[in-house]
Computed example of a mutant assay.
Amino acid sequence: MPTSPETTFPLANYDRLCFLKNIIKSPQIEVGEYTYYDDFETVENFEQNVRYLFEFIGDKLIIGKFCQIASGVTFIMNGANHLTDAVSTFPFAIFGEDWAPAMAGKSYPTKGDTTVGNDVWIGYNATIMAGVTIGDGAIIGSKSVVTKDVPPYTIVGGNPAKVIRQRFSDAEIEHLLEVRWWDWPVERITRELGGLTGREPKKL
């Protein structure tokens, strides 16, 4: 049997890679089974790198199963947003006193939850902006800044991140999205490892 997804540190004598859901404390972060985070220093850095996640805003970071998240990956949540269509972007109201009423009848912009699909690989030092949806099977290149949704099984890179290429044909991607291998029982995943590490999606 494979390592249990309830194991915090699945690699023997190595505490800088964890199954992420087992260390998350914030109720605004949801993580699926077997998604791992690997950090050069400590896995406790993950939640510190989810920036501007405030309870009063209520947005969530939702990450699927079997994702691979490298050291330095940062998520910028909606709490970072300022007014962009006003004369000034300065957040007067947060300083209180005579400036407290500055946001009366107004609200800061929000783009909703940030969602990472299943089997997504996010490379070193990538930044994911608020409200982005990253599709299943996508790859985010190292040091990319993702400002827009990423289609399933697509490789993106750069600042801002742009599509480099699809990993498979449209028909193969449609098949993989129907198969949803990450939802299989672990026993079936184990039996199908040859196909999962092969190059022919239609064999699954």
Rank of each mutant, 00 (worst) to 15 (best):
G64D: 06
A102E: 13
I164F: 12
R180S: 06
V179P: 00
W121T: 06
N13Q: 03
S144R: 04
I63P: 08
T147F: 03
A100S: 11
D113Q: 02
K60D: 00
T197Q: 02
R16M: 01
H82V: 11
V132H: 02
P185G: 08
L83S: 12
V50N: 04
Y34K: 01
N13E: 14
T84Y: 15
I29D: 09
G32I: 06
C18M: 10
E41V: 12
T7N: 08
V163F: 00
G137D: 00
V179K: 05
A86K: 14
V31K: 09
F90V: 13
K111R: 12
K162G: 05
D59S: 09
S71D: 15
V73E: 01
K25H: 14
N49P: 03
E44Y: 04
W182N: 01
E200S: 11
W99H: 11
R167K: 11
L17P: 01
T190F: 10
V50I: 11
G79C: 09
P27F: 04
I173R: 07
A104V: 10
E33T: 10
I76Q: 03
G117A: 01
T110R: 15
L193M: 15
V120L: 05
F95K: 05
D113F: 07
Y37G: 05
D98C: 06
T110S: 14
Y14G: 01
N78Y: 15
Q68H: 11
P101E: 11
T154P: 01
S144K: 03
P152H: 09
P27Q: 08
C67E: 09
P101L: 10
F95G: 02
Q28I: 06
E33Y: 04
F168R: 07
Y14D: 10
G117T: 05
A102H: 14
L20F: 10
I63T: 10
K65G: 00
N81I: 06
F40V: 03
G137R: 00
F90A: 05
E200A: 10
L177S: 06
E41Q: 10
P91C: 12
A100L: 15
I57H: 13
V73P: 03
I140H: 07
G137F: 00
V179R: 10
V146T: 03
V163E: 05
D85S: 12
I122E: 01
F90C: 02
G157W: 05
G96E: 12
N159K: 11
G105D: 07
E44N: 09
P101A: 08
T42L: 12
T114L: 02
G79K: 11
E47C: 09
K21F: 13
I189T: 06
G123K: 04
A171R: 05
L177Q: 14
T127C: 04
M77R: 11
Y153V: 00
W184I: 04
K106E: 13
F40T: 03
L53P: 06
L83K: 13
S107H: 14
A171I: 08
K202L: 15
V87T: 09
T154G: 00
E33L: 12
K148E: 02
T42R: 15
Q166Y: 04
K203F: 04
D59Y: 04
V150K: 07
T154K: 02
F54K: 11
W182T: 05
R51D: 00
L53M: 09
A12K: 15
H82N: 13
R188F: 03
G112P: 07
G105S: 08
N13T: 07
Y37S: 07
Q166V: 02
E192C: 12
T133C: 02
